[in-house]
Amino acid sequence: MSKKLLFFSLVSLFLFTSCFEFVEEITFNKDGSGNATLTINLSKSKTKIASIMLLDSINGYKVPSKKTIKNTLAEIISKIKKTKGIHNVKNTLDFEEFIVTVSCDFDNVEALNAVLLTFSSKKEAIAIKKNKHFIYNKKSKTFTRSHHFNIGKEFQKTKMKDRKVFETATYTGIYRFETPIKSSSNPQARISQSKRAIMLRVKAQDIITNKQTIKNKIQLQN
């Protein structure tokens, strides 16, 4: 799981901090194209992380250097740029606040699914192809967000003391549309007053233990 997009490329740092947020933002145009931005925000633990970055290892884990993190990010960006239907790939890497962002424009959600396939194992790739992470149906005006990474399985492989890091970690998904939202299948999701945006905020630990899910089917108005 340590290669799943940028989130997992920095997992070794997450094990040393007690607060981080993973934010997924997708803005859709009516034709199904749009923009996607992923943000990893560790700013609330920046003082602690800055101190840890000065060490070679901690609690049996090797601490990645700034060069290693930069190289990992560059490798990820390079792979994303090669994906058909993906354009205008950008990223930021802030070692002061410890915030990382990766963004891109996409022609359709198939391009986003293709990006996920690039960073998936063969087994996971089969699952994604069969049950896609993102589906946008222009005819029925529905957007479906799913996921097939077995995070819980990987979580069980970590040490008990390291699992505490997920107690305050959160996932936030924000989706914006040009057409007003009619309804969503996930009861935890909140639709904005304008009806053109919806947000889901979930504790990472609840996702891992299957108490809550990031899966959602959003129905837009006709």
Rank of each mutant, 00 (worst) to 15 (best):
A197M: 11
K130V: 03
D162G: 06
V102R: 02
T92Q: 12
M160K: 06
I208D: 06
T179F: 11
A189R: 03
E97L: 08
K139H: 10
I181G: 14
L93C: 13
E96Y: 01
V89K: 04
E124S: 08
A36S: 12
E96T: 07
K211R: 08
A204N: 10
L10N: 07
F8H: 11
L112E: 09
I207G: 13
P64T: 00
T172H: 05
D107G: 04
A169V: 04
V109K: 07
F7L: 15
T17Q: 05
A36P: 01
H87V: 03
V115D: 02
F8A: 15
K4A: 11
S51T: 07
K70C: 13
S103D: 15
Y175N: 10
L220P: 13
K130N: 09
N216P: 01
L54M: 10
V102D: 12
K3E: 14
F95M: 06
Q188H: 07
E110P: 01
K122N: 12
T72E: 15
S103T: 05
K203L: 14
H148T: 10
K79S: 09
E178T: 13
N71M: 09
L6K: 00
L112M: 13
S57Q: 06
N186I: 01
G173V: 12
E24F: 11
S9Y: 04
R201T: 13
V165K: 04
V89N: 10
A204W: 09
N186A: 10
I26T: 12
V100R: 00
T17P: 02
L55Y: 02
F155Y: 15
A74N: 13
F143E: 13
I208N: 02
I191V: 14
I49Y: 06
N71I: 04
V102I: 15
K159C: 09
L10K: 00
I151G: 15
N131W: 02
M1Y: 04
K122Q: 07
N71T: 08
T213W: 07
S78P: 00
Q221R: 01
N29D: 13
K195N: 14
C104Q: 08
K48M: 14
L10F: 10
M160W: 00
N71Y: 02
I218H: 05
K159Y: 00
S183G: 06
K215P: 00
A74W: 00
I208P: 02
T179A: 15
I76N: 12
K203D: 10
I49L: 15
F143Y: 11
K79W: 00
P64Y: 03
S9L: 12
S121I: 04
K4H: 06
I198T: 05
K164E: 10
V23Q: 08
G32L: 09
Q188Y: 08
A127M: 09
L93M: 12
Q219A: 13
G60S: 07
I99Y: 00
T37N: 12
A127V: 02
V109Y: 03
E75K: 06
P180K: 03
G152T: 01
K70S: 15
F14I: 03
N113H: 04
N88T: 07
R190G: 10
D31K: 02
S103Q: 07
M1L: 07
L6W: 06
T172I: 14
S183P: 08
T142N: 08
S120C: 11
A197C: 10
K62A: 14
N88Y: 01
K4D: 09
I198V: 14
T101W: 05
H133S: 14
G32A: 09
P187T: 05
Y136H: 06
K48A: 15
L38Q: 06
G85A: 04
